[in-house]
Amino acid sequence: MMELLDPIVLTQFAVGGILAGALYALLACGLNLVFGVMKVINLAHAELMLLGSFLTWLLFTTFEIHPLVALPFIMVVLFFFGYGLQRVLIERIVGTTELSSLMVTYGLAIIMMNLGLLIFSSDFKAVPALQGAWFLWDEIIISIPRGVAGIVALLVTLSVYLFLEKARIGKAIRAVAEHADVALICGIDVVKIRMITFGLSAAMAGAAGVMLSMIYSFSPETGPDFILKCFAIIIIGGMGNFAGAFFGGLLLGVVEAFTAGFISTQWAEGVAYMLLVIILLVRPTGLRGKAHA
């Protein structure tokens, strides 16, 4: 037990946790973006991520394209996939009950998962494009794939955040999230903004999928674990709140890393839900949620 309290070990856990949490943050921010703008919980979000993972795997194994080179291309593909999906499917459930949006996106998740099983089988895949480790101050070890994945995830999330804060379209997305009716009479084509929003969310999921493929093995059935954790994160961080999902994701990564280090990796898998219960007991609206959201 004593060596666990060594500052080096604690820093090791913290750094590992933040890097892993960055991936959760990227995924959860995308999920929360769609929820914030159209009040739809996209249960197929993790399947969009896996679409990114499988595209990475295909490009890597057939054309030897490095995942980091494939990243922008995959994000563009996922953007247009999401954009089209919003147009033909999701737009129909905007403004309906939350139950019908859950059923439609759950159906979408099942279809995507089964298509994945048909095409790729249930075998696990991996994309071992990066290897090795960095050493910080000679003592803290960061595996290069995890380090790169975490940093890229942070950069993508930050870019989307800046886009929402500063860009003309980004501001319009925030306006639609608050009052679609008023945005409409400001001349904002709300339907188109929702397509862009879903595209952006899918591109974020795709980027998460590229990063995932470099650090974990995955199969078409990997989705449910991730979507449940993302759920926990956005509830912890506050539904619809971008910054909340970001910090919620990092928090989960760190708590998982410490749980794995101090207790066991089995416990780490369940800690998201314990964290959820604890935070909701203390603050029923989530860390950054509003009292009457």
């Binding site: 501001k171 319009a172 925030r174 306006a175 608050e178 400001c186 904002i188």
Partner: peptide
């Protein structure tokens, strides 16, 4: 738009 600044609200107009 309560969560946007005054300037941003005008920009939306």
């Amino acid at each position: 738009f309560a969560e946007m600044t005054v300037t941003e609200n005008l920009e939306m107009g």
